[in-house]
C-alpha cells in the first residue's frame, strides 16, 4: 500500500509535467479537440511508463522538487564556466601542457540517482570525464591538474549529497578528502 501511494505521487507529477510540456510545445490553448488529443497522448505515455515499471523515484524524481534548478544548477554552471576556460587555455596553448591521469573519487551518495547526478556532473565539467563506476567510487579521467579536479569533485560530492537529502556532516566529508 505504501509503495502504491508512492508510485501514484510520481505518476501524478510526471503526468502534470508531460501535460505542461505538451501545452507549451504545441502552443495550442484554444481548441478543445487538440487539447483532448494532447491529454490522451499524455495518458498513453503514462500507461506505457507504468507498464514498463520505470516510473519510480529514479524515473520521475519528484522528491527532488525544484532544488536541482535553484540550488545546484547555478553553482554547476559557474564550475562549468571556470573549467571551460581552463580547458580552452590548454587546447589553445602552443605546446599543450597535458597531465592526463586517472583518479578514483568517492561517491558518498546513498541513492543510485544521486550517484548518477554526481557522475553526470563530473562529466559535464570539461576536463574531467567519469569513465567507470565501481560501487561507491567513480573513476575519473582528468586532462590536467589532479589537485584541482580532486578538490572540485569533493565539493561537488558534498553538494549532490545535500541535494539528495542525505546531508553528510561536514567533519565526515572533510576526513576522506
Amino acid at each position: 500500500m505504501q509503495s502504491r501511494t508512492l508510485i501514484l505521487k510520481y505518476v501524478v507529477t510526471l503526468g502534470l509535467l508531460l501535460l505542461a510540456n505538451w501545452l507549451l510545445w504545441s502552443g495550442h490553448f484554444e481548441s478543445p479537440f487538440l487539447i483532448g488529443l494532447g491529454v490522451l497522448s499524455c495518458l498513453g505515455c503514462l500507461f506505457l511508463g507504468v507498464r514498463m515499471q520505470i516510473i519510480d523515484e529514479e524515473g520521475a524524481p519528484a522528491q527532488l522538487g525544484i532544488r536541482p534548478f535553484t540550488h545546484y544548477a547555478p553553482w554547476l554552471i559557474k564550475e562549468i564556466a571556470v573549467s571551460n576556460w581552463e580547458v580552452a587555455k590548454i587546447v589553445m596553448s602552443p605546446r599543450m601542457p597535458l597531465k592526463r591521469n586517472l583518479i578514483l573519487v568517492n561517491a558518498k551518495q546513498q541513492t543510485p540517482l544521486g550517484r548518477v547526478i554526481y557522475a553526470n556532473s563530473i562529466t559535464l565539467t570539461p576536463g574531467t570525464v567519469s569513465v567507470e563506476m565501481l560501487g561507491d567510487k567513480v573513476r575519473v579521467h582528468a586532462l590536467s591538474l589532479k589537485e584541482a579536479a580532486d578538490e572540485m569533485s569533493s565539493d561537488m560530492s558534498d553538494r549532490v549529497c545535500r541535494l539528495e537529502g542525505s546531508r553528510p556532516s561536514s567533519d565526515e566529508s572533510r576526513k576522506d578528502v
Partner: peptide, 18 residues
C-alpha cells in the same frame, strides 16, 4: 589536436557545454 581518444572527449565536452 588532442593526442588520443580519452583526451578528445574533453574537447567534445567543451563544445557541448559552453
Amino acid at each position: 589536436r588532442l593526442p588520443e581518444f580519452f583526451s578528445r572527449m574533453h574537447g567534445a565536452g567543451l563544445t557541448d557545454t559552453m
